[in-house]
Protein backbone atom coordinates (compact mmCIF):
# COMPACT_ATOMS: atom_id res chain seq x y z
CA UNK A 1 0.00 0.00 0.00
CA UNK A 2 2.82 2.41 0.82
CA UNK A 3 4.38 4.16 -2.08
CA UNK A 4 7.67 5.49 -0.82
CA UNK A 5 8.68 7.42 -3.91
CA UNK A 6 5.64 9.66 -3.60
CA UNK A 7 5.94 13.13 -2.08
CA UNK A 8 4.64 14.08 1.38
CA UNK A 9 1.10 12.91 2.03
CA UNK A 10 1.33 9.54 0.41
CA UNK A 11 3.29 7.15 2.57
CA UNK A 12 3.28 9.43 5.60
CA UNK A 13 -0.31 10.62 6.11
CA UNK A 14 -1.61 7.40 7.68
CA UNK A 15 1.46 7.24 9.92
CA UNK A 16 0.74 10.77 11.07
CA UNK A 17 -2.77 9.72 12.10
CA UNK A 18 -1.47 6.69 14.00
CA UNK A 19 0.93 8.99 15.86
CA UNK A 20 -1.96 10.98 17.38
CA UNK A 21 -4.72 8.35 17.73
CA UNK A 22 -4.41 4.94 19.43
CA UNK A 23 -6.08 2.85 16.73
CA UNK A 24 -5.08 -0.28 14.84
CA UNK A 25 -5.03 1.31 11.42
CA UNK A 26 -5.82 4.50 9.55
CA UNK A 27 -6.26 5.78 6.04
CA UNK A 28 -6.52 9.15 4.36
CA UNK A 29 -8.63 9.51 1.26
CA UNK A 30 -10.16 12.05 -1.07
CA UNK A 31 -13.88 11.87 -1.84
CA UNK A 32 -17.06 13.86 -2.12
CA UNK A 33 -17.41 17.25 -3.73
CA UNK A 34 -15.12 17.51 -6.68
CA UNK A 35 -12.40 14.93 -5.98
CA UNK A 36 -12.88 11.34 -7.06
CA UNK A 37 -12.80 8.70 -4.31
CA UNK A 38 -9.22 7.59 -3.84
CA UNK A 39 -7.16 6.32 -0.92
CA UNK A 40 -4.15 8.61 -0.65
CA UNK A 41 -2.48 6.56 2.08
CA UNK A 42 -3.38 3.56 4.25
CA UNK A 43 -1.47 2.01 7.14
CA UNK A 44 -2.63 -1.55 6.42
CA UNK A 45 -4.69 -3.67 4.04
CA UNK A 46 -7.69 -3.86 6.37
CA UNK A 47 -8.39 -0.12 6.36
CA UNK A 48 -7.60 0.05 2.64
CA UNK A 49 -10.31 -2.58 2.11
CA UNK A 50 -12.77 -0.65 4.30
CA UNK A 51 -12.15 2.42 2.12
CA UNK A 52 -12.60 0.44 -1.08
CA UNK A 53 -15.84 -1.06 0.18
CA UNK A 54 -17.25 2.37 1.00
CA UNK A 55 -16.16 3.80 -2.36
CA UNK A 56 -17.74 0.86 -4.24
CA UNK A 57 -20.98 0.96 -2.32
CA UNK A 58 -21.20 4.75 -2.22
CA UNK A 59 -22.07 4.71 1.47
CA UNK A 60 -20.45 4.35 4.88
CA UNK A 61 -18.91 6.52 7.61
CA UNK A 62 -16.45 8.36 5.36
CA UNK A 63 -19.25 9.46 3.02
CA UNK A 64 -21.34 10.67 5.96
CA UNK A 65 -18.34 12.53 7.41
CA UNK A 66 -17.80 14.33 4.12
CA UNK A 67 -21.50 15.07 3.63
CA UNK A 68 -22.09 16.44 7.11
CA UNK A 69 -18.65 17.90 7.80
CA UNK A 70 -18.71 16.16 11.19
CA UNK A 71 -16.88 13.13 12.62
CA UNK A 72 -18.75 9.83 12.40
CA UNK A 73 -17.96 7.66 15.41
CA UNK A 74 -18.87 3.97 15.59
CA UNK A 75 -17.12 2.57 18.72
CA UNK A 76 -19.00 -0.73 18.39
CA UNK A 77 -19.82 -1.12 14.73
CA UNK A 78 -21.26 -4.62 14.87
CA UNK A 79 -22.55 -4.86 18.46
CA UNK A 80 -24.27 -1.50 18.94
CA UNK A 81 -24.15 0.45 15.67
CA UNK A 82 -25.04 4.16 15.89
CA UNK A 83 -26.41 4.08 12.39
CA UNK A 84 -26.98 1.40 9.81
CA UNK A 85 -25.96 1.59 6.15
CA UNK A 86 -28.00 -0.91 4.07
CA UNK A 87 -25.13 -2.40 2.05
CA UNK A 88 -22.01 -1.31 3.96
CA UNK A 89 -23.21 -2.58 7.36
CA UNK A 90 -23.97 -5.99 5.89
CA UNK A 91 -20.61 -6.19 4.12
CA UNK A 92 -18.57 -5.09 7.13
CA UNK A 93 -20.33 -7.65 9.37
CA UNK A 94 -18.32 -10.34 7.60
CA UNK A 95 -15.03 -8.68 8.52
CA UNK A 96 -14.25 -9.65 12.11
CA UNK A 97 -11.13 -7.48 12.42
CA UNK A 98 -13.08 -4.21 12.22
CA UNK A 99 -14.90 -3.70 15.53
CA UNK A 100 -14.75 0.11 15.79
CA UNK A 101 -14.70 2.60 12.93
CA UNK A 102 -14.21 6.38 12.98
CA UNK A 103 -14.31 8.87 10.11
CA UNK A 104 -13.08 12.49 10.36
CA UNK A 105 -13.79 14.90 7.49
CA UNK A 106 -10.97 16.67 5.68
CA UNK A 107 -11.79 20.23 4.73
CA UNK A 108 -10.09 23.44 3.62
CA UNK A 109 -12.25 26.26 4.93
CA UNK A 110 -15.77 24.94 4.42
CA UNK A 111 -14.77 22.99 1.31
CA UNK A 112 -14.80 19.25 1.98
CA UNK A 113 -12.23 17.20 0.18
CA UNK A 114 -12.03 13.78 1.87
CA UNK A 115 -11.82 11.89 5.14
CA UNK A 116 -9.59 10.11 7.61
CA UNK A 117 -10.81 6.57 8.36
CA UNK A 118 -9.61 4.76 11.52
CA UNK A 119 -10.48 1.31 12.80
CA UNK A 120 -9.83 -0.83 15.82
CA UNK A 121 -9.94 -4.59 16.30
CA UNK A 122 -11.86 -4.33 19.58
CA UNK A 123 -14.90 -2.18 20.37
CA UNK A 124 -14.08 1.02 22.22
CA UNK A 125 -14.65 4.77 22.04
CA UNK A 126 -12.01 7.23 20.98
CA UNK A 127 -10.98 9.38 23.97
CA UNK A 128 -11.98 13.01 23.57
CA UNK A 129 -8.34 14.19 23.62
CA UNK A 130 -7.46 11.71 20.86
CA UNK A 131 -10.44 12.85 18.81
CA UNK A 132 -9.45 16.52 19.20
CA UNK A 133 -5.87 15.77 18.20
CA UNK A 134 -7.07 13.91 15.13
CA UNK A 135 -9.35 16.78 14.13
CA UNK A 136 -6.42 19.20 14.48
CA UNK A 137 -4.27 16.92 12.36
CA UNK A 138 -7.09 16.69 9.79
CA UNK A 139 -6.93 20.46 9.27
CA UNK A 140 -3.25 20.22 8.36
CA UNK A 141 -3.61 17.07 6.27
CA UNK A 142 -6.41 18.64 4.26
CA UNK A 143 -4.11 21.27 2.78
CA UNK A 144 -1.29 18.82 2.19
CA UNK A 145 -3.57 16.34 0.45
CA UNK A 146 -5.28 18.93 -1.72
CA UNK A 147 -1.99 20.51 -2.72
CA UNK A 148 -0.58 17.11 -3.53
CA UNK A 149 -3.51 16.02 -5.69
CA UNK A 150 -3.13 19.24 -7.66
CA UNK A 151 0.63 18.78 -8.01
CA UNK A 152 0.38 15.16 -9.07
CA UNK A 153 -1.86 16.25 -11.88
CA UNK A 154 0.77 18.62 -13.14
CA UNK A 155 -0.99 21.80 -12.13
CA UNK A 156 1.16 22.71 -9.17
CA UNK A 157 4.28 23.40 -11.16
CA UNK A 158 2.62 25.82 -13.52
CA UNK A 159 2.93 29.41 -12.36
CA UNK A 160 -0.24 31.05 -11.11
CA UNK A 161 -0.78 32.40 -14.58
CA UNK A 162 1.72 33.33 -17.23
CA UNK A 163 0.45 36.86 -17.72
CA UNK A 164 0.54 39.55 -15.06
CA UNK A 165 -2.95 40.76 -15.90
CA UNK A 166 -4.38 37.28 -15.31
CA UNK A 167 -2.44 37.07 -12.06
CA UNK A 168 -3.92 40.36 -10.89
CA UNK A 169 -7.43 38.96 -11.49
CA UNK A 170 -6.53 35.80 -9.57
CA UNK A 171 -5.30 37.87 -6.61
CA UNK A 172 -8.52 39.90 -6.62
CA UNK A 173 -10.61 36.72 -6.82
CA UNK A 174 -8.56 35.35 -3.93
CA UNK A 175 -9.74 38.40 -1.97
CA UNK A 176 -13.35 37.58 -2.88
CA UNK A 177 -12.93 34.04 -1.57
CA UNK A 178 -11.28 35.31 1.64
CA UNK A 179 -14.36 37.49 2.18
CA UNK A 180 -16.81 34.73 1.21
CA UNK A 181 -15.35 31.96 3.34
CA UNK A 182 -13.29 33.76 6.01
CA UNK A 183 -10.20 31.71 5.15
CA UNK A 184 -6.52 32.68 4.76
CA UNK A 185 -5.15 33.96 1.46
CA UNK A 186 -3.19 30.73 1.01
CA UNK A 187 -6.33 28.62 1.48
CA UNK A 188 -8.38 30.85 -0.80
CA UNK A 189 -5.80 30.52 -3.55
CA UNK A 190 -5.59 26.78 -3.01
CA UNK A 191 -9.36 26.50 -3.40
CA UNK A 192 -9.34 28.43 -6.67
CA UNK A 193 -6.54 26.17 -7.87
CA UNK A 194 -8.47 23.05 -6.79
CA UNK A 195 -11.55 24.29 -8.59
CA UNK A 196 -9.51 24.86 -11.75
CA UNK A 197 -8.10 21.35 -11.43
CA UNK A 198 -11.56 19.81 -10.92
CA UNK A 199 -13.02 21.53 -13.95
CA UNK A 200 -10.01 21.25 -16.22
CA UNK A 201 -9.92 25.02 -16.58
CA UNK A 202 -7.33 27.66 -15.76
CA UNK A 203 -7.18 29.58 -12.48
CA UNK A 204 -7.74 32.76 -14.49
CA UNK A 205 -11.04 31.40 -15.82
CA UNK A 206 -12.23 30.43 -12.35
CA UNK A 207 -11.12 33.86 -11.11
CA UNK A 208 -13.23 35.52 -13.78
CA UNK A 209 -16.29 33.49 -12.76
CA UNK A 210 -15.77 34.65 -9.18
CA UNK A 211 -15.10 38.31 -9.98
CA UNK A 212 -18.03 38.63 -12.37
CA UNK A 213 -20.15 37.02 -9.64
CA UNK A 214 -21.29 34.19 -11.85
CA UNK A 215 -20.31 31.71 -9.19
CA UNK A 216 -19.27 31.68 -5.57
CA UNK A 217 -18.14 29.31 -2.84
CA UNK A 218 -20.85 28.67 -0.28
CA UNK A 219 -20.22 28.76 3.43
CA UNK A 220 -22.37 25.65 3.82
CA UNK A 221 -20.23 22.77 2.61
CA UNK A 222 -18.15 25.00 0.36
CA UNK A 223 -19.83 24.01 -2.87
CA UNK A 224 -18.91 26.17 -5.83
CA UNK A 225 -22.25 27.16 -7.21
CA UNK A 226 -24.00 29.42 -9.66
CA UNK A 227 -25.08 32.72 -8.21
CA UNK A 228 -28.73 33.45 -8.44
Amino acid sequence: MRQHDQPAGRGVAAEAVLAVAPVAGASVSTLGGFLSPETIDASDDTIARVDELQFDLGEGPCWDAVTTGRPVLEPDLRGRPGRVWPAFSRAIAESDDVAALFAIPLQVGPVRIGAIDMYDVRPGALAEADLLRTIALAAELSRTVLRQVIEENGLGEAPLAARPRSRRRIHQATGFVIAQLDVSAADAELLIQARAFAEGRTMAEIADDILTKRRRFTVQGGEFEEER
Binding site: R168, A173, T174, G175, V177, I178, A179, L211
Partner: peptide, 19 residues
Protein backbone atom coordinates in the same frame (compact mmCIF):
# COMPACT_ATOMS: atom_id res chain seq x y z
CA UNK B 1 1.02 44.52 -5.00
CA UNK B 2 -0.18 40.91 -4.67
CA UNK B 3 -1.43 41.62 -1.15
CA UNK B 4 -3.02 44.88 -2.28
CA UNK B 5 -4.92 43.09 -5.06
CA UNK B 6 -6.16 40.49 -2.57
CA UNK B 7 -7.22 43.23 -0.13
CA UNK B 8 -9.04 45.02 -2.95
CA UNK B 9 -10.89 41.77 -3.63
CA UNK B 10 -11.90 41.43 0.02
CA UNK B 11 -13.18 45.03 0.18
CA UNK B 12 -14.87 44.88 -3.24
CA UNK B 13 -16.76 41.77 -2.18
CA UNK B 14 -17.59 42.98 1.32
CA UNK B 15 -18.86 46.40 0.27
CA UNK B 16 -20.09 45.51 -3.20
CA UNK B 17 -17.93 48.17 -4.84
CA UNK B 18 -15.63 48.10 -7.87
CA UNK B 19 -11.85 47.68 -7.66
Amino acid sequence: RVTIEQAKGVLAHRHQVDM
